[in-house]
Design a protein around this nucleic acid. Structure first.
Lengths: 216, 216
DNA sequence: GTACAAAGTTAGATTAATCTAACAAATTTA
DNA sequence: TAAATTTGTTAGATTAATCTAACTTTGTAC
């Protein structure tokens, strides 16, 4: 059996693993808003349970077992968000915090019913895929805007970072799921990108922003 | 802020307080399936928070503050059970364990919506009253079938014993909340009752069963 | 290639909730 | 009422998750 805290670590680890950068103790501590030594002892614990690979001073990696667990929690989180929004009529801003709690409920029946009531959805309203009951993601070929080449056109299909400030920013520049993004130029010295949004607005995205915008 | 464990103690304390017998350390330990010393240290903790009155070797009592808290948790529990049954279509037997977890979710909005979706119900699927948002119980006039006289007709409005096997039995004979029960005869030698259910099925209830079925 | 800064680790403390073992009070029984 | 039993309490250990302070390793800058 996994504790609620362990589940949260796995979720964080999985999220960091999507960024294509090494998962460091510092990043985990930052994401979970705790101190590094706490991460350290939990890393030892998760390693003992074969959920991560961990060697001193090296980057942390999820094992297949750990990734599967993480994806199953993610599944519950996203199903819950969708349920709170579509069935219970709560606002998109308020569902996350509640889902953070509901996702830890231990009852297969409960989540099976949610899944059924929603009609076995494959994506949540952020455009992010919902893992299936085996922890497998649906076919989905989105990649970070960061990996896009100069001159390419693509569509926004997801957002990795759910910070309110980031989402608000995206909103303010009129960027929503499905928006067209054209890479006009890449500034190699800092990896920022000059982009054209929806065929009109010109702006610049930092490397961080580019790594957090998923396109296809 | 109260921890999940503290909430469970308060709920247990409240339940014991209904039995009209002194609330002892032993009873609490028995109900929560923990050892007496654990109850002891929690009692000190709850007393410090003014949720109970506690003196060494004396019976424990809920303060008004403690009772109110307990009733508010009970409210969430019962609303959740009703929601799981009526909105999510889960069975009577399976809702309790899930509600034990959901009741601790911290979100007024979540429970407000549940309450709204259910139309501000006053009774849960077991027929038990749901405290209001101030921790007050609605007027409630149900009594055990056991006290019913021969020839009387009544409706099932609650069940005291929540054992899965008992609930499953009720289900199997098609007895649900609101079902009509007519007392055909009372066998005085063992206090069992011959009853007619929903105007058709004839069966016999033992004294135990009669004491656990609430009717009005 | 030292030297300094950043990141990571260890040791040891803290808090909540639990336990066991030993002791003390209250209650029942003879 | 004295002995035996039950109930309640204390002291101290344990586990999970966190922290601070001190130390070590790694990486960067000059």
């Amino acid at each position: 059996m996994m504790t609620w805290t362990e589940e949260n670590y796995l979720k964080a680890l999985h999220r960091l693993s999507l960024a294509n950068e090494p998962i460091t103790v510092k990043r985990i501590a930052g994401l979970l808003d705790i101190k590094m030594p706490s991460v350290n002892s939990m890393a030892k614990n998760l390693a003992k349970k074969k959920l991560i690979r961990y060697e001193k001073y090296k980057a942390i990696e999820l094992t297949d077992k750990g990734r599967k667990q993480a994806l199953l929690i993610l599944r519950k989180h996203r199903l819950t968000e969708l349920f709170l929004k579509n069935v219970m009529g709560l606002g998109w801003e308020e569902v996350h915090d509640i889902a953070e709690q509901v996702e830890h409920i231990q009852s297969d029946r409960f989540f099976t019913r949610i899944d059924e009531m929603l009609g076995h959805p494959k994506f949540d309203p952020h455009g992010e895929p919902i893992p299936d009951t085996n922890g497998k993601l649906p076919a989905y070929k989105a990649f970070p805007l960061f990996e896009c080449e100069e001159g390419k056109k693509c569509k926004l299909s997801g957002v990795l970072d759910h910070e309110v400030s980031f989402l608000t920013y995206l909103n303010s520049i009129g960027l929503t799921l499905g928006s067209a993004i054209e890479v006009m130029a890449i500034r190699t010295f800092d990896s920022s990108m000059e982009v054209k949004l929806n065929g009109s607005t010109l702006t610049v995205f930092s490397e961080t922003a580019c790594r957090n915008l998923l396109v296809s």
